[in-house]
Design a binder for these strands. Structure first.
Lengths: 111, 111
DNA sequence: TACGACACCTAGCGTGTCGACATATAGCGC
DNA sequence: GCGCTATATGTCGACACGCTAGGTGTCGTA
């Protein structure tokens, strides 16, 4: 049944991560926190989804990683959006908009 | 890369099918056509997605199937929304709304 | 010293979508 | 009658994604 819990991401995870990183370089753990916070707890990204997604995005050349220290003095892998990643984000934004419009068209249909 | 072509349904297929059937009993082939037409060609449901989806929805008790003749005199399996299916559709509508709102929250974030 | 929060990671599983293929009938032009 | 297109249903294998469940290690605090 796709889940078993409550939160689904339905293929929007890449888009969301790219958007968060576009706000400024950040590390995985913090990205998940921001996502949860901004979405008012709707998105609760599990680590088993988060890290594979980040590696995926890096493999595709949309993110770049660099080890740095956090404010709290721990090692963390900071991700930055590449030029390619920014272009892809823009394309994904358009795609998402088109998708939601198309769905809205169907859902608004009465008869 | 999620696709390779152009159209993705991102887990909205069940919702869309249920909605179309809610407009009136219909058979698979026609459901796909209506979906394509209403969405102005955005959704082009492949047969390899359509029929498994219909069987899934039937298995879960959200749709009921019955063989009938179409207007053009061919045999076709007409699907009807069950009471359970209608409840599920309503729940899915709320879920979709919540999801899009949450995504919108993230995407609107500037800073 | 024990615990929770921080921060990273992987393996295995379920499931949904797609592409390709298979089947069959109705209606049309030739 | 023959071939073609549209209608109509279906299966199968590959693949990508997200989830569960496990693992490592550090820091701060009670």
């Amino acid at each position: 049944m796709t889940q078993g819990k409550a939160e689904y991401v339905k293929g929007t995870l890449d888009l969301l991560i790219l958007k968060i990183v576009a706000l400024g370089p950040n590390h995985g753990y913090a990205i998940a926190q921001r996502l949860q916070q901004i979405s008012k707890d709707f998105f609760q990204i599990h680590q088993g989804s988060l890290y594979p997604a980040l590696h995926r995005l890096e493999d595709r050349g949309w993110l770049e990683a660099e080890w740095k220290d956090t404010e709290t003095g721990r090692d963390a892998k900071f991700y930055t959006l590449t030029r390619k990643g920014r272009k892809h984000l823009e394309a994904e934004l358009v795609n998402w908009e088109r998708l939601t419009e198309a769905v809205a068209l169907v859902l608004r249909t009465a008869e």
